[in-house]
């Protein structure tokens, strides 16, 4: 964990906004799970509760013109990059006012205007896209960069290894400004890392492709943020890829249908919850006297209100018009 006394006042103050965003996304996920149980949300639903510090720490450190890709556990990523909670919830509800007009759903949130180039549903399938996108940012002579979030499970797919090797090659010429963020939440659906990866240290697997890497505590916002700032500066400077393995934990099941979770025991989840990333951040901001009981109360209330508004907006929004069915297939 990043030592509080080493943090600057500026870093601590800046974290207040991200604390509020993390509270909001947690409330958002709770509401989404309720809506799923009530049949308001269809398909799959994968919530981010427990992993907030990872996306928050990374997305707080990039520039507005940077871009990112992630997999299907993508609600918080959209909220953190500024997508309106109403439009995100409406997408989950399959409404016309959703981020993707109700055509993508929970797994395919997308907000290109904010640099979010999509949530993807095939494990690992977005990694080559992000790698090619990073190449393009340098090809176009910009100093923008690309974040690619992926799960621990994705590291065992060919769609990880092929682009990782290409990133290593392109990085030699400074043509691949990408940060791979392995969100190691310990489980690929129900298969633990120890049962799915021959190597326990996932960051070290990037060595095979000459990609600099490190692992860090993904539950501590300040640790993530410090690593993110340093790595992002380096990648922007060099155009070489970098990988960070963020050790984290998902409090909920893999998806909303994963009720019994036979692959882990309750004690493990309870233990993990003692290091809830939101509580950890809250404690440190309190210790720094930047947050009072009243502030916490207000932030929670505001988050609840914003989520209520988002749910109301989604609920009251119209279904997509029938003629939307055939729109957006081709762009020519």
């Amino acid at each position: 964990m990043q030592r509080t006394e080493d943090l600057t006042r500026e870093e601590l103050t800046a974290a207040l906004e991200w604390y509020a965003k993390m509270v909001l996304s947690r409330r958002f996920e709770d509401a989404a799970e309720r809506a799923f149980r009530h049949g308001k949300i269809g398909g799959y639903l994968h919530v981010y509760s427990g992993q907030e510090a990872v996306a928050a720490g990374l997305l707080s450190a990039i520039r507005k013109d940077d871009i990112f890709f992630t997999a299907y556990r993508d609600h918080a990523h959209a909220l953190y990059s500024g997508s309106p909670p109403g439009a995100v919830m409406a997408e989950l509800y399959g409404k016309a006012t959703g981020l993707a007009k109700g055509k993508g759903g929970s797994m395919h949130l997308f907000d290109a205007s904010r640099g979010f180039y999509g949530g993807y549903g095939i494990v690992g399938g977005h990694i080559p896209l992000a790698t090619g996108a990073a190449y393009t940012l340098r090809y176009l002579d910009t100093d923008r960069l690309c974040l690619c979030f992926l799960g621990d499970g994705a590291m065992n797919s060919g769609s990880f290894h092929e682009p990782a090797n290409m990133a290593g090659l392109w990085g030699r010429d400074g043509l691949c400004p990408i940060v791979y963020i392995v969100e190691n939440n310990q489980y690929a659906m129900g298969t633990s890392v120890s049962r799915s990866s021959a190597v326990a240290n996932l960051a070290s697997r990037f060595l095979a492709y000459e990609i600099e890497n490190e692992r860090a505590d993904g539950m501590d916002y300040f640790t993530v943020r410090r690593v993110a700032s340093r790595v992002i500066n380096q990648v922007r400077e060099t155009g070489r890829p970098y990988a960070v393995e963020m050790l984290t934990y998902r409090f909920a099941g893999h998806g909303a249908a994963d009720l019994f979770q036979p692959y882990r025991n309750r004690g493990e989840v309870t233990d993990a919850r003692t290091r809830d990333p939101i509580t950890l951040l809250e404690d440190r901001l309190r210790a720094a006297e930047l947050l009072t009981d009243a502030d916490v109360e207000r932030i929670r209330r505001e988050a609840e209100h914003a989520v209520e508004q988002a749910v109301k907006f989604a609920d009251e929004s119209p279904e997509p018009a029938a003629d939307e069915l055939f729109k957006d297939v081709y762009g020519s």
Binding site: P128, G132, A134, T136, Y139, L140, S159, E162, M166
Partner: peptide, 26 residues
């Protein structure tokens, strides 16, 4: 070499990367 890109034998990788390039305007 920036415009004529020789790749490893990684069809999934380079087709996917090209899709990412296309999404960004190439």
């Amino acid at each position: 070499p920036k415009r004529v890109i020789d790749t490893p034998i990684s069809e999934l990788g380079f087709v996917g990367a090209a899709i990412g390039m296309a999404m960004l305007g190439l």
